[in-house]
C-alpha cells in the first residue's frame, strides 16, 4: 500500500478503526485532540459511534459500559485527563474488561504544560488507579510503530481481557511520518461470551462487576488475575536494541526520547565511543531480562527520559547493582537534545 504522511494522533485513530474499533468516547485536551477530531469525522462513515462525553470521568465509564457490552472501544486523552480516568481504569481492570486507552503525555503535575513529557510513567506502569492491578503499556517511537502498536493494543486487550494503554507524547502525537496500514485479522481472538448483550433467555445472566465482598473470594480473583499478569510478563515483553555488542555505555530510552538517544549514539560513534540502546516498547511488562543480561557487559547504563527519573527505578531493579545506572532527563515539556545526551555518554564512557 502507498505510504501517506500522517500525524501520530490521526494515525492512532485510523489504526483503531482498521482494528475494528467502532466506539470512541473522549473529551478534548491538548495535545491529543486530533484523535477525537479524526474519530468524529470517520466514525459516522464506518457505522461507528463517536461521542464527546461531558467529562473524562464519563468517557472512561462509557468505555466500561461498551467494553462490558462486548465491543472494541477506545478513549484517548492527555495527562490531566488521564488522571481523571484513573477511577474508571481501576474498575475496568477489576471487571476484566478489554479496552484501549491512549495517553499523549504532556508535562505535569497539575495543569503542567502542553509540551511533550514522559512523566506519567509511574502512573501508567505502577498503578494510578487503586488496587492490585496491571495494565499493558505500549510506547511506540515512530508513527508507523504507533499504527502497529495500536492494532496490537486491541488484540492484547481482547486476548487478556484487560485495559491496554498506548503511551505517546505530545511530539509523537503532533509529528507526521510516512505510514502504511497493515491488514488486520481478529479471528484468532477468544469469543466474548462473557459480555452483557442480553441473555435472549438462552443463557444465565452475565454480570460485569468488580465487587467481591468476601476477602477470600476477592483474593482468589486477584490471584487468578496475577497469574494472567505473570503470563504476560513471560510472553509479551517487547523491546528493540541497537549496538549492544561491545558497547561501553548503554542508553535506555523509550518513545520520542529513544529517537533522540539514537542521534546521540551516532554522535558518540563519530567520537569513537561505543554506545548502544535498549528501547523498551512495552513499559509494562518491562524488558527486565535484556537489561539484566546486558548489565554485566557494560561500564554503565543511562536512563534518558523526559521526566525527573521514573523508568530509571525499573532499570535499577533489573540491573540489581551489577553496573551503575545513571539518569539524564529534561522535564516540564523540555526535550533533551542529541548533544546533551552525548555529553552524558562521554561523561560516563
Amino acid at each position: 500500500m502507498d505510504k501517506v504522511l500522517m500525524k501520530g494522533n490521526e494515525a492512532i485513530a485510523e489504526a483503531a478503526i482498521r482494528a475494528n474499533c467502532r466506539h470512541f468516547f473522549g473529551y478534548p485536551i491538548t495535545p491529543q485532540t486530533e484523535i477525537s477530531a479524526y474519530m468524529a469525522k470517520r466514525m459516522s462513515k464506518v457505522g461507528g459511534t463517536f461521542l464527546q462525553a461531558e467529562s473524562e470521568v464519563a468517557a472512561i465509564n462509557m468505555v466500561y459500559g461498551a467494553a462490558g457490552a462486548g465491543v472494541r472501544v477506545m478513549t484517548s486523552s492527555s495527562s490531566p485527563g488521564i488522571s481523571l480516568k484513573m477511577e474508571g481504569l481501576s474498575y475496568i481492570a477489576g471487571a476484566d474488561l478489554p479496552c484501549v486507552i491512549v495517553n499523549i503525555v504532556r508535562a505535569g503535575p497539575g495543569l503542567g504544560g502542553i509540551q511533550p513529557a514522559q512523566s506519567d510513567y509511574f502512573q501508567a506502569v505502577k498503578g494510578g488507579g487503586h488496587g492490585d492491578y496491571r495494565m499493558i503499556v505500549i510506547a511506540p517511537s515512530s508513527i508507523q510503530e504507533t499504527v502497529d502498536c495500536t492494532i496490537d493494543a486491541f488484540d492484547l486487550a481482547d486476548k487478556y481481557r484487560m485495559p491496554v494503554m498506548l503511551m505517546g507524547d505530545g511530539m509523537l502525537g503532533q509529528m507526521m511520518e510516512p505510514v502504511s496500514f497493515p491488514e488486520v485479522k481478529t479471528d484468532h481472538l477468544p469469543k466474548k461470551d462473557w459480555a452483557t448483550t442480553g441473555t435472549k433467555m438462552k443463557r444465565k445472566a452475565n454480570i460485569i462487576n468488580s465487587l467481591y465482598i468476601h476477602p477470600e473470594e476477592l483474593e482468589e480473583v486477584i490471584l487468578k488475575r496475577e497469574e494472567k499478569y505473570n503470563t504476560i510478563y513471560e510472553t509479551e515483553v517487547k523491546y528493540h536494541t541497537e549496538g549492544l555488542e561491545n558497547a561501553d555505555v548503554v542508553l535506555v530510552a523509550y518513545g520520542t526520547t529513544a529517537r533522540i538517544a539514537k542521534a546521540a549514539i551516532a554522535l558518540a560513534k563519530q567520537n569513537g565511543i561505543k554506545a548502544g540502546l535498549i528501547r523498551p516498547i512495552t513499559l509494562w511488562p518491562f524488558p527486565t531480562d535484556i537489561i539484566a543480561k546486558t548489565a554485566p557487559n557494560v561500564k554503565c547504563m543511562i536512563s534518558v527520559e523526559m521526566s525527573t527519573g521514573q523508568m530509571v527505578e525499573d532499570i535499577r531493579l533489573a540491573v540489581n547493582g551489577v553496573c551503575p545506572v545513571h539518569f539524564y532527563g529534561r522535564t516540564g515539556g523540555a526535550v533533551p537534545t542529541p548533544t546533551a545526551i552525548f555529553e552524558q555518554i562521554r561523561r560516563y564512557a
Binding site: 505510504k3 504522511l5 511530539m171 503532533q174 509529528m175 507526521m176 511520518e177 510516512p178
Partner: peptide, 18 residues
C-alpha cells in the same frame, strides 16, 4: 515532506503546537 517521500527518502514533519 511529501517531496521527500516520493523521492524515496525518510521524512519527518513536526509542527509547533498549542
Amino acid at each position: 515532506s511529501y517531496l521527500g517521500l516520493v523521492s524515496g527518502l525518510e521524512v519527518s514533519w513536526l509542527p509547533s503546537y498549542g
